[in-house]
Design a protein around this nucleic acid. Structure first.
Lengths: 232, 232
DNA sequence: TTAGCAAGTTAACACCGTTCATTATCGTGA
DNA sequence: TCACGATAATGAACGGTGTTAACTTGCTAA
């Protein structure tokens, strides 16, 4: 992560970082509605229009913050994976899942910003999209590792709906593992959906009707998933 | 649903309905950011301050819309249940789940408003809370019906974390089924989390990285849940 | 050294939620 | 029938928002 370019480029990059950091600070301390251009600028000793030198719009600025948050989350999960001996894949999976949930719960407003804003999939990938893909790859690679180390039982190709098969084949091509059974892709995806679905409901407070501490329920989920992935 | 009270009360109730209906119209046609007091009033041939005769604030108006949406969703699900013969409980479960997902996908902006705004659980229940509880009860009762008709295998009390048991006991008391095993409550809750988690990710576009049509995946989920609930 | 560009400013526009004083309208009791 | 009180609705105003345009300042590269 070494700085490059002219001096001007460097100070400019520093300002961009300060802007996104300030935006996040306000997000955390005062909530999403308080993250206005004027509030950001005020806290930086600037005026709002100056921010347009760095971002085309308020939306674009927020998208950039989302990218940064994706990167932080990805780093956190990858650190959890690396800190676990590569021999114990079950532990790796558990720690990675816990790291994801922990980050979500300790950064609820950030999580809401990242995953709670329905984003239409644009044509070309921007910075934010790339950060999101990097995050996605982190869990994909973990699952691939699990499969390669010890394949688990999956549905046979013939038992999977064609409409699902064709989508899984496309996605399998994207992650670059052409020899993986379609059934394994299905297991990966449904496990991920269960994991992210759970965490999302948690952060959005949708479990409060029954639970005030969802940790034991999450623990149960992880046991279930580990089982499904043949980890004992 | 018969109107009561004086003539004034009736016209007032009609105006309240028109306001929430207009708010929803704008929500659907122009998105959540367009649902401003001025826009609502404009479309009704009024001015914004007049709306304060009916709602204490913009937030309160939106909360009321959420309540209406809850009721519509609940009615939809209950209709799907009633239209299925009470003998075939598997079909009832499937149809109810499909009705929930269908409503979510055909009313994405409404779903986002209802379930995507992290709401802190207040002290006293307001109109919106009651509508939410009514929705919750709908699925609870379906599960209770399933259990009473044909109990499915569940964890023994001794195999459930105490921290989870105490919460489930409280919730079991709320739904008024003191003789239900704690394990059955856990199964209900985890099934519901999987269902709502899936639908939420779907609406928020969080599956787009792998799927452009999530229907077959949802079908797979329902088969899984039916299996878990002993429906064959 | 100087021309040019980047960074930042102020002023303005149209919109927002909300409050306040004021007016018009309606229903009802004398 | 009339007058009064409650209700409904208005227009003006305040401080805030995203955004644009014109303008100044200061650094930098030729």
């Amino acid at each position: 992560m070494t700085e490059t370019g002219t001096r001007r480029d460097r100070t400019r990059a520093a300002t961009v970082r300060e802007i996104t950091a300030t935006a996040r600070l306000i997000l955390v301390k005062e909530g999403p509605d308080a993250v206005t251009l004027r509030a950001i600028a005020r806290r930086m000793g600037m005026t709002a229009p100056a921010l347009y030198r760095y971002f085309g719009s308020h939306q674009e600025l927020l998208r950039h913050v989302v990218g940064d948050l994706f990167n932080e989350l990805t780093d956190e999960v990858q650190a959890a994976i690396r800190q676990t001996p590569s021999g114990d894949l079950k532990e790796r999976f558990m720690h990675a899942s816990f790291a994801f949930r922990d980050w979500a719960l300790t950064h609820q407003r950030e999580y809401t910003l990242v995953f709670g804003t329905p984003i239409v999939r644009g044509e070309t990938l921007d910075f934010t999209d790339e950060c999101g893909q990097r995050f996605g790859r982190t869990f994909v690679e973990l699952f691939l590792e699990l499969w390669k180390s010890k394949p688990f039982p999956v549905l046979a190709d013939a038992d999977i709906e064609p409409a699902l098969t064709v989508q899984m084949e496309r996605y399998r091509g994207e992650v670059g593992s052409p020899d993986l059974p379609i059934g394994a892709m299905v297991v990966f995806l449904s496990c991920w959906i269960r994991l992210q679905g759970f965490v999302t409901l948690e952060v959005f407070g949708q479990m409060g009707f029954a639970l005030d501490d969802s940790s034991p329920m999450f623990h149960l989920l992880l046991m279930d998933l580990a089982d499904r992935l043949g980890l004992h």
